[in-house]
Simulated scan of single mutants.
Amino acid sequence: MPVISDPYSFNEEDLYVDLEPIFEHPLFLKCEGFNFAGSIKLKPATEMVEAAERAGVMTPDSVLVESSSGNMGVALSVIAASKGYRFLCVTDSRCNLSTRLLMEALGTQVHVVTEPSPDGGFLGARLDYVRRRCARDERYVWLSQYTNAHNWKAHYHRTAPAIARWFPHLDVLFVGAGTTGTLMGCARWFRHWHRPVRIVAVDTVGSVTFGGTPGRRMLPGLGMSMRPPLLDTSYVDEAIQVEEADTIRTCHRLASHGFLFGGSTGTVVSGAIDWLAQRDTQRLTAVAIAPDLGERYLDTVYQANWIQDLYGDDVLTTDERPHAGPRRDRGSRTVPGCARRPGP
C-alpha cells in the first residue's frame, strides 16, 4: 500500500493500454497522466525544482516563474503548493480554462498573454514577459523548461528505463514533441540500449520544431513556434506532423471506447497509427507515450461547438473516422531533416 506525504512522490509508471483492438494496429500506449498533476510534466517539474534547490538557487523567499501552455504549469503548481513556494505561471489565451482554474486553486498566480509577439508568436510573448519580471525582481527564479537539461534528464532516468523494463524487444517508440524534453531523454537513453529502437517524434502541423511552416495551432501542449533549444535531431530517426482535426478524431475514437485522453495524447496516437498503417507490423513491438488525460479538454476537444467553429461541421462525421485506411492527403506527414536509420 503506497503511503505518501508529498504529492510529487507518486506517479503511476507501469500502466499501458493495448490499442490494437481499437485501431487494428499493434500499439501499446504508456499512460503518464495518473499522478496528482495529471500529466507527464510532473517528472521534469520535480527534477528541475530539486536541482535548483540543490544548487542553492531556491530560497524560502524565491518566487518560481515559468512559461507554460498548461501541463507544466499545473505540475509546478502542485510542487510549489507542497513546498511552500509562490509561483507565477505565464500562459496564453489557448490555455484551457479548466487548467487555469486548477492552477489558481493550487495557489498559483496566472498571467495570461493575449497578444502574440510579431516574431515569436504566443510563446515569444510569454518569454518576453517572464524576462521582464525576472529583470525587475531578483526573487524570481525561472526554471526555463525550454533550456533546462533536467527537463530531459527526468525522462532519461525514469521514463525510458520504465519502458525498457516491460518491453525488452521494443522496435519503435513514438514520442510527442513539445519542449522535446521527453523526446530527448528517451532518445538518448535508447541510443545506448542493447538493440536499436527507432525514435519517431510526433509534432503538430503549424509547429516549426522540425522546420515546418508556421501556422495556426489551437491545441496547447505539443508543437513550438521556435526551434526547441533542447532538440538534437541526431537522436531522432523520423519526425511526423499531425493535423489538429486528426488529433480530435483520434481523441473521440478513444473516448468512444472509454479512454478519455488529452489533445497531446490524441496527436501522438494519431501519428503512430498512421505510421503503422503504412508498414508491415508483424512481429513489430511499438510503444507510444501518452502525456495527458482528457478532463482538461472537455471545453475544447470534447465540446462540439468549439470543434465546429474551428474545424468545420464534418470533422467527426462517420466517413472521417480516424485511420479507416492510409490517407496521405491528410493526417500525419513526414518532416525532413532528421537522422534516419533503416526502419523495421
Rank of each mutant, 00 (worst) to 15 (best):
L76E: 07
P229G: 05
A80M: 05
D319A: 13
G56S: 09
Q241G: 11
R195Q: 15
Y146W: 15
E243M: 09
A177T: 09
T46F: 00
L310Q: 10
N11Y: 12
P342Y: 05
P26E: 08
T114C: 10
I22Y: 15
A290R: 01
Y146P: 04
T300Q: 07
L143D: 05
Y129V: 01
W275K: 03
L76S: 02
D119K: 15
A255F: 11
L284K: 08
P161N: 14
I248K: 03
S9K: 03
E244R: 03
H169G: 11
L276G: 01
D309T: 05
R188E: 11
A45W: 01
L101H: 14
W275Q: 09
T209I: 08
D237P: 02
L254S: 07
R188M: 14
G178Q: 05
L27Y: 06
T46H: 02
L106F: 12
A45C: 13
L106W: 03
A105D: 10
T334W: 03
L254M: 15
L15P: 05
P60R: 08
H192M: 08
S225G: 13
L42P: 03
P21F: 14
P342H: 12
P214R: 09
D319I: 07
V335F: 03
Q282W: 14
A80V: 09
V17F: 15
R191P: 02
G294Y: 01
G84V: 02
E104V: 11
H157L: 12
G124L: 09
S62M: 10
K153A: 12
Y311N: 01
L42F: 06
I240Y: 07
L230Y: 09
T108N: 05
L76Q: 02
V141W: 04
S77V: 07
A277C: 06
K153H: 14
D232N: 15
I40P: 04
C134H: 08
N96K: 04
R328K: 01
W275M: 00
A245K: 11
E47C: 12
M103Q: 07
F34L: 15
R249M: 01
D128E: 15
Q308T: 09
L102V: 05
E320M: 13
T281L: 06
A239E: 06
L64M: 06
F23M: 00
T180Y: 03
Y8V: 00
A75P: 02
L254A: 08
R321I: 12
T247R: 01
L106H: 02
P7H: 05
A290D: 02
P21L: 13
G181L: 12
G181D: 11
L123S: 05
S234Q: 10
A105H: 09
E47D: 08
N96F: 01
G70I: 01
F28E: 15
V172W: 01
S98F: 01
S234D: 14
S225N: 14
E115R: 15
G271K: 05
S264M: 08
A272F: 03
N151E: 06
D299W: 12
Y297M: 08
F210P: 05
V112H: 12
R136H: 06
G84L: 02
E47N: 14
G121Y: 11
R136I: 05
T213P: 03
R54A: 15
Q145H: 14
E53W: 10
G176E: 06
I163Y: 11
Y235C: 10
T108E: 10
W193D: 14
G325D: 11
V112Q: 13
G212P: 07
C31Q: 13
D6P: 04
K83G: 00
D237A: 09
A277F: 01
